[in-house]
């Protein structure tokens, strides 16, 4: 495998992690909530895709999008809004509880065994570019990450709701005192994070074709780690952290001997601990307006 091939693989895996990290980082940036139920947005989307896979694919994706956005808005309205003024650790525990609850509801509804679906098999075909064989889904993952990250950054920087988000993030009480409807702003943040989750869902399911009610947990953990590495609350940091975790994972997959490969995640998390010992604030500490949120 050439270095270029490895970089593309790392960017592809990292892109998925980066999108997950940005989804988590966005909510953290706006309301200080570490949303461990984020993986469940991805997971429930996968099951909607399972149920709607027989539809023409744009309709299937639209169904996932509508369901997951409503699901995320409902989680905010019914759960997180009720504890908005609680300390951050309480919010985190609540998100843990919500995550477990959703997983077990899905076990009751769909069972705990792996379900499979053959969604958009065409995008898994490899294409040959300059002597490199690259899966179409890998290119899509990289493209989706670049496009969505750019659009989100522009949205936050230049739109009215974008600077309202930054205001709520910095001083929620004052934001209300100047007339910002913080509940609406937070709902928009949840909706955007749901759109990112749907992107992860579609790309992940198209690539692996499988799901269980628990598969969102590992993605959330990796996304959370990427968020911490990048710098909590920094969107560029989240993206960078996601790509770095993807790169480390890909490199370890290559260099670890076969008997150590099952422990790949342990090596990833060890490297995270080492990195945080050196730079506990993450790679990009939140300093300025466009970085926070």
């Amino acid at each position: 495998m050439t270095l270029l091939q490895m970089l593309i693989d790392a960017a592809s895996v990292g892109g998925l992690y980066a999108l997950t990290a940005i989804g988590i980082g966005l909510i953290f940036g706006v309301i200080g909530l570490v949303n461990f139920a984020y993986g469940e947005y991805i997971m429930v989307g996968a099951y909607v895709l399972l149920l709607s896979a027989s539809l023409y694919w744009p309709f299937a994706i639209a169904a996932v999008l509508v369901f997951v956005v409503l699901f995320a808005l409902a989680s905010d309205y019914l759960v997180f809004r009720q504890v908005r003024r609680a300390p951050p650790e309480t919010l985190m525990i609540v998100s843990f509880g919500l995550s477990f609850m959703i997983q077990h509801i899905w076990v009751v509804m769909f069972g705990s065994l792996t379900k499979t679906v053959n969604f958009l098999p065409a995008i898994n075909r490899s294409v040959e570019i300059a002597g490199l064989r690259i899966a179409g889904v890998s290119l899509l993952q990289i493209a989706a990450t670049v496009v969505l990250t750019t659009v989100l950054a522009l949205f936050i920087k230049y739109t009215r709701i974008g600077y309202q988000m930054r205001a709520v993030s910095e001083n929620p009480r004052m934001a209300r005192l100047v007339g910002v409807n913080s509940n609406r702003v937070i709902a928009v943040a949840f909706a955007i994070s749901a759109v990112l989750a749907v992107t992860v869902t579609v790309l992940f399911v198209a690539q692996t074709g499988s799901m269980t009610p628990f598969f969102g947990v590992s993605l959330t953990m990796i996304g959370f780690v990427a968020t911490v590495i990048g710098g909590m609350g920094s969107l560029p940091g989240c993206a960078l952290g996601g790509f770095l975790v993807g790169a480390v994972t890909t490199i370890l997959q290559m260099v670890l001997p076969p008997h150590l490969q099952p422990f790949r995640e342990a090596f990833v998390f060890t490297s995270v601990i080492l990195m945080l010992l050196v730079r506990p604030q993450g790679l990009i500490a939140v300093r300025s307006a466009w970085e926070r949120v």
Partner: peptide, 13 residues
């Protein structure tokens, strides 16, 4: 809002 520009602070108003 210290992390927003002067102009953005006005628009928020």
């Amino acid at each position: 809002f210290k992390k927003l520009s002067t102009h953005e602070n006005l628009l928020i108003g």
